[in-house]
């Protein structure tokens, strides 16, 4: 474990709870893409199937349980409890256009042709594009609530920190996982224009609005 990965995991945890609290407190999921949340739930479920078979540490197992539970809870709040506030008219990204190609790629490019490893690879590839429905929804509505932009900033920062973690581990531990690094770069690049808007607008107290 290194500081980049620890801060990255905490940033990821913060993002998930910022969103969960926003929906719970405001009793509304306006401006939030339910499709992205479904994809994140799929990412965690397919990635953490080794929860019971591969014990790494208490921290690792605890975080896996928290990530799965909180993301499933978010999907539950959006599609069941506060369904009336779900903005399905703007959350129209065709996620099958993400899941199918990512599933095919996971079969073709992976470290090990075993069920668990293919599912892990699918999860890594899917996570890199899972935010697209959310970014697409913001581009359609033209703006995002400030709390939603904080969520996105924490979520985007987590994988950027993981890139630093992989540089650290490469030099100090000789650890290198090409699949995770490439997917992590794609994932972080997708946030770039949001990061620009966030730093130039939200940090100065303005609302995040996309140029029409």
């Amino acid at each position: 474990m290194n500081i980049f990965r620890l801060v990255g995991d905490l940033s990821h945890l913060l993002a998930i709870f910022v969103l969960l609290l926003k929906i719970w407190k405001s009793r509304s999921c306006a401006g939030v893409s339910g499709k992205s949340q479904i994809l994140f739930a799929l990412v965690f479920i397919t990635r953490y199937l080794d929860l019971f078979t591969n014990f790494i540490s208490v921290y690792n197992s605890l975080m896996k349980v928290i990530f799965i539970a909180s993301t499933v809870a978010t999907v539950y709040l959006m599609y069941i409890k506060f369904k009336a506030t779900y903005d399905s008219n703007h959350d129209t990204f065709r996620i099958e256009f993400l899941v199918v190609p990512v599933g095919g790629l996971a079969f073709l490019v992976n470290h090990d042709f075993t069920p668990l490893e293919i599912l892990w690879t699918f999860s890594i590839y899917l996570e890199s594009v899972a935010i697209l429905p959310q970014l697409f929804m913001i581009s359609k509505t033209g703006e995002a609530e400030t709390i939603t932009s904080h969520y996105l900033f924490a979520l985007g920062s987590y994988r950027a920190l993981y890139l630093l973690n992989w540089i650290y581990r490469y030099y100090f531990e000789g650890y290198f996982d090409l699949i995770a690094v490439v997917a992590g770069c794609v994932q972080t690049i997708l946030y770039c224009d949001f990061f620009y808007l966030y730093i130039t607008k939200v940090m100065w107290g303005k609302k995040l609005s996309l140029p029409a």
Partner: peptide, 10 residues
């Protein structure tokens, strides 16, 4: 790739 097929990251 991680030793003995285990992924130690979240």
């Amino acid at each position: 790739h991680i030793a003995d097929g285990k992924h130690d990251e979240l």
